[in-house]
Design a protein around this nucleic acid. Structure first.
Length: 217
DNA sequence: TGCCAGGCCGGGT
DNA sequence: ACCCGGCATGGC
């Protein structure tokens, strides 16, 4: 009998197929998207990123040199734009202060990078892990609201379980494999958007319905 | 129409 | 150590 997290992954992959995530062309774009999507619909983030592209600012040093006021206007559609402009600026300046390129920034070990990212005001555990996994290719697992909700509804955690406990569930249950961590999180977001939303869950048609507590197998 | 979306921080107990 | 309000646009 496979572990719940193995079974959930198998079913999600069988149902949806590979997601080939993160939506973003370059590590910088992925990093920017990770900040902009904080508590925000991805559709809005896309508009903001399109604005940055249109202004030809999706380049590390040009973006780091852009004023927060200008950034705020460009990223307005992503919401919380004043806050996020400062957060983006904090992140980009922290990187360019020490490194000439993103490649250089990522040329360190996972733990050290994680600490550096978390030291930036506005970068929390999820944003840091998203950047590390999807932009940097490091083997870490991203926990988001969908993951929390999924684990909760499947009875695998309690309400109060924190980020690192949830992350440890995945890290200890799965082989350390960047492609797997990437794909699994992408599938969780996919099933979350479609079936496991906060207000209108559609558990009756969810591909995981047979795994839900109380389901008749 | 009100409520929500791939968080995080800071201030008040 | 919690708990909670604030941040903001666009879509259903």
């Amino acid at each position: 009998m496979p572990q719940p997290l193995d079974e959930i992954y198998r079913r999600l992959l069988a149902h949806f197929g590979p997601q080939h995530w993160w939506p973003g062309d370059t590590p910088l774009e992925i990093m920017v998207g990770a900040v902009l999507t904080q508590n925000t619909n991805w559709e809005n983030v896309e508009k903001a990123i399109a604005n940055l592209k249109g202004a030809d600012l999706l380049e590390l040093h040009r973006l780091a040199a852009t004023s927060t006021g200008m950034l705020a206007e460009l990223i307005r559609p992503s919401g919380y734009y004043n806050l996020k402009a400062v957060r983006l600026h904090n992140l980009l300046r922290a990187i360019t202060a020490e490194h000439a390129s993103l490649e250089s920034f990522f040329a360190a070990d996972l733990q050290a990078l994680r600490e550096q990212l978390l030291a930036v005001k506005g970068i929390g555990p999820e944003t840091a892990d998203s950047i590390l996994l999807y932009a940097g290719g490091f083997p870490t697992f991203v926990i988001d609201a969908y993951t929390h909700r999924l684990l909760l509804r499947h009875g695998l955690i309690g309400e109060e379980t924190d980020y690192y406990e949830m992350q440890e569930l995945f890290l200890s249950a799965l082989p350390e494999d960047v492609a797997l961590f990437n794909e699994y999180h992408a599938l969780i977001v996919r099933v979350g958007k479609e079936f496991c939303r906060k207000t209108k869950p559609r558990c009756d048609t969810c591909p995981l319905r047979e795994l839900l507590p109380g389901a008749v197998a």
